[in-house]
Simulated assay, not measured.
Amino acid sequence: MTPPLALDIDGTMTRPDDSIDPRFFDVLPEWDAPVVLATGKSFPYPVSLCHFLTIPQNVIAENGGVVLARGDLTTNGDGEAARRVAEEFVAAGYDLGWGAPDLINRWRETEVAVARDQPLGPLEEIAAEHGQEVVDTGYAYHVKSPGVKKGMGLQSVADLLGLDPAAFVAVGDSENDVSTFGVAGESYAVANADAKAKDAADVVLDESFSAGTLAVLEDLRQRA
């Protein structure tokens, strides 16, 4: 029996050019256990990806800020506080870094993402003043409520699916996947992962990006 999966998207299901590896469109619909897409992206992205993969919409978005499973939607975190941080950051002369229209933050409910070419120090200072924290996912700085993490989202999804979180196999590539690795029973960091993800994972793969994730899935299928 194949295990349930918790898969990060960017850097994990993508190729080096940021495109989704098309092989997932064959592998995941045939997976005979729940698949959860866990991402720092805003809610519509993983929901849409589930739709096009033709798999159930089991989703952890915004680093645990939004959770969906079996039609049950839960929102965590203080989105208003995150938006106040963004407003002060811009008022101080900085920029969120996405241009107009800002399609990165347009649909975010519980956090704000800032481009990594913007100064981190002032962002962290303003965030702390509003009781928020900043997490670097390798793709953006995420301003979010402390304690809201992907791992918390996985616990919620597992409960909704009637599964033990320890039954899940997690694959990821960045700091925001560390909490997921701590909840899942088995965890893998792809070779392109950052140092914190590699330190937290049970196994660091030789292969990078989607190639690493697909290798894990093939190994799991052979073991089943």
Rank of each mutant, 00 (worst) to 15 (best):
D10F: 01
D10P: 07
D10R: 00
G11H: 02
G11F: 03
G11P: 12
G11Q: 07
T12F: 06
T12G: 07
T12M: 12
T12D: 03
M13R: 04
M13K: 09
M13Y: 08
M13T: 08
T14Y: 04
T14S: 14
T14A: 10
T14L: 03
T14H: 06
R15D: 11
R15A: 02
R15M: 14
R15K: 13
R15V: 01
R15W: 03
P16S: 11
D17S: 05
D17N: 15
D18N: 15
D18W: 09
D18Y: 12
D18S: 15
D18E: 14
D18Q: 15
D18R: 14
D18L: 14
S19R: 15
S19E: 15
S19T: 15
S19Q: 15
D21R: 04
D21G: 00
D21F: 02
D21I: 03
P22F: 12
P22Y: 12
R23F: 00
R23W: 01
F24P: 02
F25D: 09
F25C: 05
F25Y: 14
F25K: 07
F25V: 04
D26W: 09
D26A: 15
V27D: 05
V27M: 04
V27C: 05
V27P: 12
L28F: 12
L28H: 06
L28D: 11
L28I: 13
L28R: 04
L28P: 11
L28T: 04
P29S: 04
P29N: 10
P29Q: 10
P29K: 10
E30V: 08
E30W: 01
E30S: 14
E30M: 08
W31H: 08
W31F: 11
W31L: 08
W31C: 00
D32N: 14
D32W: 02
D32V: 00
D32I: 00
D32Y: 00
A33N: 05
A33F: 13
A33D: 12
A33M: 08
P34N: 03
P34F: 04
P34E: 06
V35E: 03
V35N: 02
V35Q: 02
V35M: 02
V35T: 14
V35R: 01
V36N: 07
V36E: 06
V36K: 01
V36I: 06
L37E: 03
L37F: 01
A38Q: 00
A38L: 05
A38W: 03
A38Y: 06
T39E: 06
T39K: 06
T39F: 11
T39S: 15
T39A: 01
T39H: 03
G40T: 11
G40Q: 07
G40H: 04
G40N: 09
K41W: 00
K41V: 00
K41P: 00
K41N: 14
S42Y: 06
F43I: 12
F43T: 10
